[in-house]
Design a protein around this nucleic acid. Structure first.
Lengths: 180, 180
DNA sequence: CAAGGAATTCAACAATCGTTGACCCAATCA
DNA sequence: TGATTGGGTCAACGATTGTTGAATTCCTTG
């Protein structure tokens, strides 16, 4: 029974990596199973199916505990750091990619949006004292995620440069400065 | 030969509607053909395949002629209007949805990003006199598109309200105010 | 060693996908 | 009228997908 938990974990890790970064619909169970070094059948056996595996990857996806330690004064720099480091490391599943790739999926989009709202948007709104500011902050972060690839290939503000960080900081701060 | 052009047009219209709004991978050729009232085989016949049909929908997707009539002073309000009207009408294909749904697709993502860069980003950069401002402007617009559904279902600034328009205007203006 | 249960693999399934070539219908032209 | 061509349908293909139940290996226990 101990061995089963280990492979269950491997499937979860590989599934998160592949599904978050390339999209739920674009990844097959056989691909995930191969990456985990086991047979396809184990996915349905342990998680009840493809959707079940994806749903399992959403547990604690937004690392709420880390979010709780932030304040309105430190959140901008925290997200700037998040953007400056993780996004280009495709082996490290990035929560912004999760949303960009799957928030509008026909099968699991609703799960993603619900997780985002509960795990991120609501705590952020409470911290900022404004649901609108939280929504705008999220929109700014998401927009930068979506546009990142285009900005990178067109040679504009490639990720990792000070210019890019300045842009991210500017847009995030603008969201917080919004007053209805 | 004239009749063929008419059905070709119908396939193009229905294909754009479905593929733009629901995503390239989520829509089948049979679905598009049924919506157009013809057989599936005609897609491969007229467009050389699924990818060919999608590529055909990208021609003039960004309505450059309308873009050329805008100025740095009017573009914000133009995009605000675009956001306030079209996005919720699923029958009317929206260019922001095209990007959000397909810019990261494994099969056609590169086509979408290339079309966006050539048809929108570059003219916009020329108009604004800054590639960085254009990229940020695009990021702000995209972020609002991605976040829209989440904002709507969480009851925050539903589309069509003055509050939502104020948010859109604020984020777009912030992108233009960026100075490196 | 033998037995039994857990862990995993294997083989096959039904469904769906894009694509292709043969076939059919209607309009045109000699 | 009869032949021809463009426009369209039909049926089938190979490939891939998620899922399932039986078979098999592995490991622990008696």
């Amino acid at each position: 029974m101990r061995k089963a938990d280990a492979t269950r974990e491997r499937l979860l890790t590989e599934g998160r990596k592949l599904m978050w970064m390339r999209g739920y619909g674009a990844v097959s169970l056989r691909e995930i199973a191969t990456a985990a070094g086991v047979d396809v059948a184990l996915v349905s056996r342990y998680f009840g199916g493809k959707r079940g595996l994806f749903e399992a990857t959403l547990e604690g996806a937004f690392a709420q505990e880390a979010l709780n330690e932030l304040t309105p004064d430190t959140i901008v720099e925290a997200v700037v750091t998040l953007f400056a480091t993780a996004p280009r490391n495709t082996d490290d599943p990035h929560v912004m990619r999760l949303i960009v790739m799957n928030a509008h999926d026909e099968d699991v989009g609703e799960l993603v949006r619900a997780a985002q709202a509960e795990q991120f948007q609501e705590p952020l709104a409470a911290m900022l004292g404004s649901a609108e500011k939280a929504a705008l902050f999220m929109a700014a972060a998401l927009g930068l995620s979506v546009a990142e690839k285009s900005m990178h290939l067109s040679g504009i503000a490639p990720v990792g440069t000070p210019t890019y960080e300045a842009q991210v900081r500017h847009m995030l701060q603008a969201a917080l400065d919004f007053s209805s």
